Computed example of a mutant assay.
Amino acid sequence: MDVVALSLAVSPCPNDTFVFHALVHGLIPGAPEVDLTFADVDVTNTAAERGEFDLVKVSYAALPWLLDDYDLLLTGGALGRGCGPLVLSKNGEDDLTGKTVAVPGDRTTAYLLFRLWAADRQPGKIEVVPFHQIMPGVADGTYDAGLVIHEARFTYQRYGLTSIVDLGEWWEQDTGLPIPLGAILAKKGAVDPAEATEWIRNSVSMAWANPDASRDFILQNAQEMEPDVVQQHINLYVNEFTLELGKDGLAAADALLQRAAAAGLTPAVKPFI
């Protein structure tokens, strides 16, 4: 399939800028020009539902609303172990009954995991809040607890907060599988999924082969993260599942979405394996 220019939406987080640097900068032989949009995942989840991008990074939790129009690619995403969302509170209070909890998006994997974990805990009000406002909001008492992702696991102590549950740890102990966080989708009829997979896989390989090449691009978009936090972020979220989803990655996606459907939280989808 001939592609004149490829519209791509990913987050400005270091794992995405690291992974897609080579593709975005025209360094992958045979790949088309890329029109890049940066957006948080709660934005891309809904933008993808409107069909706005050829390639898009979304939450695995959003797939039940997207797979009629998009193909799941087996590379470029974010899965792993020891990298799950955290639920934070100011004083370590772990009873969320009737409490107000800030979350980063209502179709994020983090929130879906939270809903599965909190099924018998009866939290009160849920507020969708921009990611960067969650920890300050919990610290100043605006919210009783906050659900956070990404680099927050390295920085939440600076706000005087306590982790009351690591949802990745909970998930891994319960399933033995990695946690499926972010998926890369290709719009049907707009881009050939096999070609897109090859472009992205080559971009990942090139990033690992020459990590210094993407450094300036990553830091320009890292939302004022310190270089050591940036590197921790990349080390945690760019791993073997980024290069190739594999059997365990697909099993993790199946486990998440089948459990969610059984709990009535998402529409049912066909198993991936």
Rank of each mutant, 00 (worst) to 15 (best):
Met1Ser: 15
Asp2Val: 10
Val4Trp: 13
Ala5Ile: 11
Leu6Ala: 03
Ser7Ile: 07
Ala9Pro: 04
Ser11Phe: 11
Ser11Trp: 07
Pro14Glu: 00
Phe18Val: 01
Leu23Gln: 08
His25Cys: 12
His25Gln: 13
Gly26Val: 05
Ile28Cys: 03
Gly30Asp: 04
Gly30His: 14
Pro32His: 00
Pro32Cys: 00
Val34Tyr: 09
Asp35Leu: 15
Leu36Cys: 06
Ala39Phe: 14
Asp40Thr: 13
Asp40Met: 15
Val41Glu: 08
Thr44Asp: 04
Phe53Met: 09
Asp54Asn: 06
Lys57Ser: 13
Val58Gln: 07
Ser59Arg: 09
Ser59Pro: 10
Tyr60Arg: 03
Ala61Ile: 07
Ala61Gln: 04
Ala62Asp: 07
Trp65Leu: 08
Asp68Gly: 05
Asp69Cys: 02
Tyr70Pro: 06
Thr75Pro: 04
Gly76Thr: 00
Leu79Cys: 02
Gly80Asn: 11
Gly80Ile: 06
Arg81Met: 02
Gly82Lys: 03
Cys83His: 07
Gly84Thr: 06
Val87Ile: 15
Leu88Pro: 07
Leu96Lys: 06
Gly98Met: 05
Gly105Lys: 07
Asp106Met: 14
Arg107Cys: 02
Arg107Ile: 03
Leu112Pro: 03
Arg115Asn: 07
Trp117Cys: 09
Asp120Pro: 02
Pro130Asp: 07
His132Lys: 12
His132Val: 08
Met135Ile: 10
Met135Ser: 14
Gly137Asn: 03
Ala145Ile: 12
Ala145Cys: 11
Gly146Lys: 10
Leu147Gly: 07
His150Thr: 09
Glu151Gln: 12
Ala152Leu: 02
Ala152Trp: 01
Thr155Ser: 13
Tyr156Leu: 06
Tyr156Val: 05
Leu161Asn: 01
Ser163Met: 08
Ser163Pro: 14
Val165Ala: 11
Leu167Gln: 01
Leu167Ser: 11
Gly176Ile: 10
Leu177Val: 11
Pro178Val: 14
Ile179Cys: 10
Pro180Ala: 13
Pro180Gln: 06
Pro180Thr: 13
Gly182Val: 04
Ala183Lys: 00
Leu185Glu: 04
Ala186Leu: 00
Lys187Trp: 04
Lys187Ala: 13
Lys187Pro: 00
Ala190Thr: 03
Val191Glu: 00
Asp192Met: 01
Pro193Phe: 03
Pro193Thr: 09
Glu198Thr: 15
Glu198Gly: 06
Ile200Val: 15
Trp208His: 15
Trp208Thr: 02
Asn210Val: 13
Asn210Ala: 13
Arg215Pro: 00
Gln220Ala: 14
Ala222Ile: 04
Glu224Ser: 12
Pro227Trp: 14
Asp228Asn: 03
Val230Pro: 01
Asn235Phe: 00
Asn235Tyr: 00
Asn235His: 15
Asn235Leu: 07
Leu236Val: 10
Leu236Met: 14
Lys247Cys: 05
Lys247His: 14
Asp248Gly: 01
Leu250His: 06
Ala252Glu: 01
Ala253Glu: 02
Ala253Gln: 08
Ala253Arg: 05
Leu256Ala: 06
Leu265Ser: 08
Pro267His: 07
Lys270Ser: 12
Pro271Trp: 06
Ile273Glu: 09
